[in-house]
Amino acid sequence: MKTRNPLIRIFILVVAVWLIIFALVPNLFLLLISFFKPDGHAYVAVDFTLANYQRLLTPSFITIFTDSLRLALASTLICLLIGYPFAYILARAPLRIRPWLLLLIVIPFWTSSLIRTYALINILQNNGILSKLLELLHITSEPVSFMYSEFAVLAGLSYTMLPFMILPIYASVEKLDARLIDAANDLGAGNLRTFWHIILPLTAPGIMSGCILVFLPALTLFYVPDILGGGKGQLLGNYIQMQFTKPIPDWPLGAATSTILTLVLLLMVLGYKWTLKISSQRADFDAEDEEYAGASNIPLQPRGACGLGTRIVPRRRRVSGADAGGDE
């Protein structure tokens, strides 16, 4: 976006410099270090090598990587399945109570998520709240523990990350014009097809940002598996942290792992751009897009039926501004 306001340009410059110094440069350092050799207490030896990435190809690291990926994906999916209907109902709730419902979602943030994770132990442990509830409903006859299981970890991750899924989806559903749903019904689309063709594409950017906001932290949120999973398996987060803090540090290996995470992030940002295109209001959002280009290449069909129509409406080449009533 071009702007002529000098004040705004200065602000943009400040933000850009800030981001370069505190985000871009450190990440570039990280990338650089990932290609150097580890050197015990001197941290790195300046000597180019691809060995760090090779060292990540061990079965133990791949297990960590796939475990983390699986947990993060599963908790993202759970958050999406719970969060989407949640956000949808929230965004369609009466305007009077909506701010209060939003407040209820934000309130847990006032407590440290570490403390909230400890609180989950009370629910999940042997003879805990969940166990008591199941006994009360006669689903189980004796106390059960859910602790130190993948279920506990997933529950913890999903609970912690759910608001990050709800809020962006809420924002995109709230923007959705309810009359579009009427229009789809009117044109013969039932609820399911209206959702698939209209609601889903128009809220896709919200879904994608929600997924990014949940997936990446879930990949590295090490204390939840530590506390609720009993530290049985290592995740990427602990693994990276360990490389930098263990008695004989291995910065290059940690840097290589981080770089791989950054690549995952970049892939997701590409996915986000794709959802923006789906919901885009401009046909020229992406010049390579074949579908739209194809539609404008449809051959004109001068048919008899068009006769009167074309007489009433002189066809105009001039596109924008041809009609004075333009309200873009």
């Binding site: 885009s280 046909a283 539609a295």
Partner: peptide, 10 residues
Amino acid sequence: GRKPGELSGG
């Protein structure tokens, strides 16, 4: 091939 946002009101 245009999208609605690129059209005038009429």
